[in-house]
């Protein structure tokens, strides 16, 4: 399905909220801007996840910079959490190690600042909700914005529980990336799209993070449904691990999110291996002028 990215009123020049939500005052959406830059080049965006503090804070900064220099348009830094219910064994092992190595939540702001100082990539933080609550939603948001962060991806927060976050993200001009799933009803899609800012994260399959040999066909339908619910930018993640899968998803989504495969590369070969895989993944992004755009 071809969707004009500008029908909703968001444009590449003034990237903003998802279509049906009111324009957010303050800074324009950094995530939307990054996706739109890729779109202007006729391709989908590459969004790369790594956990913070794995194995230490400096490596995460170096790794984030390497991601950006090798083709990542957006970077997701995950906060290691004691109870990561949406993560499979590879990411669990990495975040458990980060915590064991003494990771502290406040270092996330140093990591974000370190990456944004050196690159143009939009840097999002992916976090389960309790660490944000514990620091205070407003305080967390203030410090994230000050560090140059783009916003938050929130795997265990639904819009119904997000009133504090809606307020704080509005105040500091941060993106709110909520998830939609193949199980989401049309009503829920509409509500989630409306609450989102920057892009909507479409979960490719019913499951947790981890590499999968095939991308499920439900993802394409979910992207179409999410667009129909009013989303201007929909990115697909969960289970994407190689350039072929990136190419397939880039054919219908605005961005492709890769996590586990990168974490495994970082684990096995450090930052150089991470950089190589990122280059390879970005080769799967559609060239200009193909069917999706």
């Amino acid at each position: 399905m071809t969707v004009d990215p500008n029908v909703s009123g968001s444009t590449a020049e003034t990237p903003g909220t998802e279509s049906s939500s009111p324009e957010t005052p303050g800074a324009p959406s950094k995530s939307a801007a990054a996706i739109d830059r890729a779109r202007a080049q006729g391709r989908a965006a590459l969004i790369c996840y790594i956990p913070a503090g794995y194995p230490d804070v400096q490596t995460t900064i170096d790794a984030g910079i390497a991601l950006a220099r090798n083709g990542a348009d957006l970077i997701e830094i995950g906060i290691p959490y004691s109870d990561p219910v949406m993560d499979g064994s590879v990411i669990q092992a990495a975040t458990t190690e980060a915590i064991a190595n003494g990771f502290r939540v406040s270092s996330i702001f140093d990591i974000v600042a370190g990456i944004t100082a050196a690159t143009d990539a939009a840097v999002l933080v992916m976090t389960y909700w309790n660490p944000v609550l514990r620091l205070g939603v407003d305080e967390f948001s203030r410090r994230l914005a000050a560090a140059g962060g783009a916003g938050l991806i929130t795997p265990d927060l639904i819009p119904e529980e997000a009133s504090q976050w809606l307020e704080a993200s509005q105040k500091y001009g941060l993106d709110r990336v909520f998830l939609v799933a193949p199980s989401s009803t049309p009503e829920r899609l509409a509500r989630t799209v409306e609450a989102s800012r920057g892009f909507v994260y479409a979960v490719s399959i019913m499951g947790v993070t981890g590499t999968r040999t095939a991308v499920s066909s439900t993802a394409e339908q979910l992207v179409a449904d999410t667009r129909a619910a009013g989303a201007a930018r929909v990115c697909v993640g969960l289970g994407v691990s190689n350039a072929d899968q990136v190419r397939e998803i880039a054919g219908y989504a605005d961005g492709v999110i890769v996590g586990t495969a990168l974490v495994a590369a970082l684990r096995d070969g450090g930052v150089p291996a991470l950089a190589d895989l990122t280059t390879d993944l970005s080769s799967g992004l559609l060239p200009a002028g193909t069917e999706a755009h």
Partner: peptide, 14 residues
């Protein structure tokens, strides 16, 4: 109380 849960499970909770 409430529902601090992944979206994937909300339909099942409903």
């Amino acid at each position: 109380g409430g529902r601090w849960m992944p979206e994937s499970l909300i339909a099942a909770l409903d």
